[in-house]
Amino acid sequence: MRAEESSLRAEPILATATSRTGWAAGHLTTALAGTTVLMAGTGLGAGLAHGAKVGDMGQVGRVLTGALVQLPAV
């Protein structure tokens, strides 16, 4: 946030009725949602590839779960 304020990119946003907390929460939400979508997509793709290779599409859920379990570490 400090870099955004120092480079004056935050100035037009914070000059409106947006609070600093709301602005920061928006950035955090975007980062978390983006990471979740990427991890889910990667897990799904890997699960489909693994399921196709071993001939058991029931493995998709297992691999997807394995990818989503990593979210707290991200």
Rank of each mutant, 00 (worst) to 15 (best):
M1C: 07
R2P: 01
R2N: 13
A3R: 15
E4W: 09
E5Y: 09
S6V: 06
S7G: 06
L8T: 00
L8E: 06
R9W: 02
R9V: 00
A10C: 04
E11A: 14
E11R: 12
P12G: 05
I13R: 14
A15R: 13
A15V: 10
A15S: 15
T16F: 03
T16D: 00
T18S: 08
T18F: 04
T21N: 11
T21G: 11
W23P: 00
W23N: 02
A25K: 13
G26N: 10
G26T: 01
T30L: 13
L32M: 10
G34M: 02
T35G: 11
T36V: 07
T36A: 15
L38Y: 05
A40R: 08
T42G: 11
L44Y: 14
G45S: 07
A46F: 14
G47M: 04
A49I: 12
H50N: 10
H50P: 00
G51H: 02
K53V: 15
K53P: 00
D56W: 06
D56G: 08
D56H: 07
Q59E: 13
Q59R: 09
Q59M: 13
V60C: 01
V60F: 04
G61K: 02
G61P: 00
R62F: 13
L64Q: 02
G66V: 01
A67W: 09
L68R: 02
L71P: 09
A73C: 04
A73F: 09
A73P: 02
V74G: 03
V74N: 05
